[in-house]
């Protein structure tokens, strides 16, 4: 299952970053595919990006909401939130585990041999603050003299934007180097911080900071496709706790908003068929890892 998941992550990485003509054009992709939403966090200013980032686009719509209303166009983010909601209601945080390029980046870093640490659960709540304040409230409320807000999350926080767009665009367009300042240094610092943290802990950005993961997490309990727990079959052996990359106890909190639905618990840990996948209430065939081991 892990191999299939890695392939899925790689394919999504290439799908949402499918423009490889940027070294020739010296610019980012500007074609019509960019009206399609990237399900995972993927900066649309990345020169290879072929889709738009829902978090970036939502902020851009909200920060200019006064202008759009004044001009009689009610751009309030319905298209973007609608798309995010369709994805979330269908798959919840399966996107985080299977289709997010920045999630893959963190997972690869975590493979670097080192001492590994937990992330205190209290930090998990931070991502909701980033979603509410940095993505919605601050771009809407804090405006300049012209009534224009800022994309707070992208501008001050998002390490995915720095990795996928900030660094490549500076390499691609030398003129930009003259404009680098403290903001760029700050963002590089955050990227370094999250990268180092990813070596030491599993998916720290997804668990503490990602507003898209926070949004999708709201659907984990009710999404169309989700992990199902058969409480009668569960023996509380704890095997699923040991393999979980986000340190949740799925047999105690099924549908947890922290679960990235990587399915390691289902495919690698549970020997009692207590965990399975379901679609809208209909169970799919569960895969018990090693019935043979149980009988041994």
């Amino acid at each position: 299952m892990e191999i299939i998941r890695k392939w899925s992550q790689a394919i999504w990485l290439l799908l949402v970053n499918g423009f490889w003509g940027f070294p020739v054009t010296g610019n980012l992709y500007q074609g019509p595919l960019k009206v399609i939403c990237s399900p995972g966090l993927n900066c649309y200013s990345c020169p290879a990006a072929t889709t738009y980032c829902p978090i970036g686009s939502l902020q851009q719509l909200l920060l200019g909401i006064r202008f759009s209303i004044e001009s009689g166009r009610y751009y309030m983010g319905a298209f973007v939130v609608g798309t995010m909601g369709i994805i979330g209601a269908t798959a919840g945080r399966f996107i985080c585990g299977w289709a997010c390029p920045f999630g893959l980046y963190q997972e690869l870093l975590h493979r670097i041999p080192s001492r590994k640490f937990s992330i205190p659960p209290i930090l998990n709540g931070l991502k909701y603050l980033f979603l509410v304040f940095f993505v919605i409230v601050l771009p809407l409320v804090l405006v300049d003299d012209f009534g224009l807000g800022k994309p707070w999350f992208c501008k001050y926080v998002c390490p995915a934007g720095t990795l996928e767009a900030g660094i490549p665009m500076v390499l691609l367009q030398p003129d930009l180097r003259t404009t680098l300042g403290w903001l760029y240094v700050n963002k590089i610092g955050l990227l370094v911080l999250f990268s180092a943290w990813s070596v030491l802990a599993s998916r720290p950005f997804c668990r503490t900071t990602c507003p898209l993961g926070a949004f999708y997490g709201l659907f984990n309990r009710v999404s169309l496709v989700k992990i199902r727990l058969d409480r009668d079959a569960c023996t509380s052996c704890g095997a699923c706790h040991a393999v979980c990359p986000v340190e949740i106890r799925i047999n105690e909190t099924p549908g947890s908003s922290e679960c990235i639905n990587c399915l390691r618990c289902l495919s690698e840990a549970c020997r009692f068929d207590a965990l399975s996948l379901e679609v809208a209430g209909f169970p799919l065939r569960s895969r018990s890892v090693s019935k043979a081991n149980v009988s041994n």
């Binding site: 900066c43 889709t51 738009y52 686009s57 973007v80 934007g161 720095t162 963002k187």
Partner: peptide, 16 residues
């Protein structure tokens, strides 16, 4: 509008 935004580089967004 989304397409228009996504086609251009958001310099502030990427820390430039």
């Amino acid at each position: 509008r989304v397409l228009e935004q996504a086609k251009s580089i958001c310099l502030a967004c990427i820390g430039i």
